[in-house]
Design a protein around this nucleic acid. Structure first.
Lengths: 225, 225
DNA sequence: ACCGGTCCTTGCTATATGTCAATGTAGCCG
DNA sequence: CGGCTACATTGACATATAGCAAGGACCGGT
């Protein structure tokens, strides 16, 4: 039940109480997806909106010739369908097994119109996403491979930290190298080489499905340089 | 006066009528900036929000070592300060002479809370910006110089088209080559070479402060390829 | 335990774009 | 008119990253 949901503090529903809270809960259809399942794609009409509860979703755009740009990874608490528009504008599929709260887009939009506090929260989340997107534009346009990887790792570390309530030196990387490459505008080979060079230089250790940070200071320097 | 404003259809105020319209007009402080003037920068607190009426503003982020990424060009009708947050998150300065509607952020936020239709419109604009930002991420991460330039030119052509009510084969480029480079994640030399190669190949003609499109079909193909 | 598949790593080479430097062009002001 | 300044172009060269290909590690199924 929503009442005890561990990701509530992070999601759209965080500011809701009483009537509004139960109203939204009534609209909720909990769903789960196995790894690799498609949540929706680029051109399909946006019938639903989602809040991720567990797992990781990759959001990406495809060019006609198959090149892919991952525009974001959705983690627990993240909302998919912020635009409340007719199309999503990108594809989404599950990197790991995923559980989510699903809402009909129409019902959700109606609900948002009824409770301005929800709309306000939605706008807050949208502008936060926008700020992240702009940060990513700097990364994609103006940073080299090493800086990209360092920024990516530290950003993920922070996001996991907010989700779990504590920061860990071990950073979970549930997505594969190809996903990281397609997020950072690199090739899989460059990602692999750069990570392994960082490991050789004792900045970090590569562990199954993640890395462990050894030299946070040097990594920070690379990320913000 | 707002009543006859030519950019009204494009801006936040488009859905406003009667009471709300006059309420917002009362909050408006018209301002002008000469070319190169700074509207605000990265770290300064966000005291105001703006709607651009005339001219072009560049929005950018700076890295500590001076590298610059332009995250967008604001054209007539565009809104600066969508986040209604304490900081802008980027710098803004005038490319050309600019006139704008300026509002106190606090007053504007208060106004938005009072009129949900404004908040809704703001959210709409924010998610539109987000979609553009994601499109730009694809461009920055996965396209080559030629594709970047072609996309940029056509996107600008469309934006001017919506502003002027008619599409023109002459695309105005009020920003310099360095600005284009910093927007597309290239160097000024690559922008110059690519544009001149396109001119040599009869895709376009370079004119003062702009280009004239000769082969729209080939340009389209490059832009979406 | 073995097999097959998927993902990751690593070396070699190719290339698009960056870097540096010189030259050209145009507007502006005295 | 001339010369200053900012901006744009062009060429020669350097390099980070891409592309290709071979091998290695790991995992899940039988």
């Amino acid at each position: 039940m929503c009442r005890h949901c561990e990701t509530r503090a992070l999601s759209v529903c965080s500011p809701l109480e009483g009537e509004a809270f139960y109203g939204l809960q009534r609209l909720n259809h909990p769903v789960t997806f196995p790894a690799r399942a498609v949540l929706f794609n680029q051109d399909s009409p946006a019938r639903h909106v989602y809040t991720i509860v567990h797992g990781v979703v990759r959001l990406y755009k495809l060019l006609p010739d198959g090149r892919r740009q991952i525009v974001g990874f959705a983690l627990p608490g993240d909302f998919l369908g912020l635009a409340l528009a007719d199309g999503y504008g990108f594809c989404a599929d599950a990197v790991t097994a995923v559980s989510a709260c699903r809402f009909s887009r129409d019902h959700f939009a109606e609900f948002a119109d009824q409770y301005p506090t929800v709309l306000r929260r939605l706008h807050e989340m949208a502008t936060h996403e926008l700020a992240l997107a702009q940060q990513q534009m700097v990364l994609l346009g103006r940073r080299d491979a090493e800086e990209k990887i360092a920024s990516f790792l530290l950003a993920l570390q922070q996001r996991w930290g907010r989700i779990h309530g504590k920061t860990s030196v071990t950073i979970d990387l549930p997505m594969g190298r190809q996903d990281i490459a397609d997020f950072l505008g690199l090739t899989i080979e460059t990602v692999s080489r750069t990570l392994n060079r960082m490991a050789r230089d004792r900045l970090l250790v590569i562990v199954p499905d993640g890395v462990r940070v050894l030299d946070a200071a040097k990594l920070d320097k690379l990320a913000s340089a």
